[in-house]
Design a protein around this nucleic acid. Structure first.
Lengths: 257, 257
DNA sequence: CCTTGTGCCTGACGTTACGTCATGCCCCAC
DNA sequence: GTGGGGCATGACGTAACGTCAGGCACAAGG
């Protein structure tokens, strides 16, 4: 059959050994991605150990999401930098993960909405739309952040829980309420009371930036460009509150935002 | 043009308003997913507000990953339970997230390997293969766990960090080493020393199960069926160590594993 | 009323990674 | 030598559109 301990397999054997289907091997053969190292005179495909190694690599690269064309290029003309390919692919996968996570969140929110309010469907779909719009807004804000800042934001987002989100939202609502009250009460932005508000504000912002200077910078750019915001994206506080806090921060030399 | 504040749009207007392409609208039309509510005598498609609402829903459901066919079914025959669909889709997305995360991990490990050991490509791909095989093993073990146990495992996996993984691995290695030593030294499984080992063992197992009875049960089933394990999947300890620990646990009435 | 110049319409093929037949030869054990 | 399974080679199907290509529709200017 074979010599020197170099076994030869027919398609179905080879397919099982490698954990793929026969059709897949046919496909790869036609694409020129993996040609069997031999054929019988009758035309049967014959695969050897070398083919197995190559198939391993193919499956591996497929696992990380590379298209077959690119795999072929990588394996045939080994020049195309693997490191660069990996970097790019990692970015794409991080993207995809965000998308999937957004979809999961949307579903979970919709399910909560379905459970509580018994008006079916309509409300649930609206919840999903809300999450989508948040996502779109996020997507849109990305252009204000540098590449690394985006990466770090994504990292920080991984550690976010719904509870944390809820608490932060509550904190903001409370603080904004107090700021509005201070404005209504004509509290001097230079006063100690305003200073306390500004400091809490600064804390909440730091909760988002995580103290990262790059994220901070992107955030500043984002808020400096409010004129170009899409209508679906609004900040949770009024312009007056924003002005007031800026004054208070200036008066007390509190940094950021 | 139109009556009673119900504007009518032509394809390109409508497409832009909704954030999709004209071709997409053609496509949905042919599928019967979204038929324009009107046509000009010349055959031009005319869309109204009702169409916009429906398109919103379509986009929404597409966002969470539903295929167009299913969207059509959901919207046309509203009977097909939305709640059930959401549950199923959530499961699928959780699956996909795991896959994506596994791929990301594989790439990151490969990149580390590329950076440290300068023999390019070969070693990096091997790293990816390792991660893949871990993933495959995980996939394979799933059949021993109940649906909810799988869900809870996935939840717990979310909180896993590479550092934690490294520490746990180290702990296991240390413990197994000590167990082997105890066996070599003929320490009685009923002794206090063996009791300490069994207790640490139990702790590490609990680190995986998180004290969850369902996960525990699946784990038991998994280990009871060692005869059918695929060759690529091996436990990190010897059969002797396993027997020894079982004896020690029995002798000291330590539960689990 | 006629003529441009866009906009729109309807096919129809391309894409990705194979799955699923259908037809017909190959191989080997009996 | 022969029967029954293995194998090869098309060829079509899938999901969700992208991208032409050929040919009316519609609105404004002459």
């Amino acid at each position: 059959m074979e010599e020197r301990g170099n076994p030869v397999y027919r398609v179905s054997e080879f397919a099982e050994k490698a954990g793929v289907t026969v059709r897949t091997l046919h496909h790869y053969d036609r694409l020129g991605l993996l040609k069997p190292s031999g054929r019988t005179e009758g035309g049967y495909r014959l695969y050897g150990e070398g083919d197995f190694a190559r198939l391993q690599q193919i499956v591996t690269l497929k696992f990380i999401g590379l298209p077959l064309r690119q795999i072929k290029d990588l394996l045939d003309r080994g020049d195309l930098d693997l490191a660069a390919t990996l970097r790019l692919q990692r970015r794409l996968l991080l993207e995809k993960r965000l998308q999937v996570e957004a979809a999961i969140q949307a579903i979970e929110e919709a399910e909560r909405s379905l459970k509580s309010s018994r008006k079916p469907d309509l409300a649930a779909l609206k919840k999903i739309i809300e999450v989508m719009e948040r996502q779109n807004a996020m997507e849109w804000t990305k252009k204000y952040y540098s590449e690394e800042a985006q990466t770090r934001i994504a990292e920080r987002a991984r550690a976010w829980t719904p509870e944390l989100q809820a608490r932060v939202e509550q904190d903001w609502k409370t603080l904004i309420g107090e700021v509005e009250a201070a404005i209504a009460g004509k509290i001097d932005p230079a006063s100690a009371q305003a200073r306390a508000l500004a400091q809490r504000w600064s804390e909440l912002v730091r909760g988002f930036t995580g103290g990262d200077a790059g994220i901070q910078q992107g955030l500043n750019k984002l808020y400096a460009d409010q004129g170009n915001w899409p209508s679906s994206f609004t900040k949770p506080f009024s312009d007056e509150a924003w002005q007031y806090i800026k004054q208070a921060m200036a008066a007390h030399k509190i940094s950021c935002a």
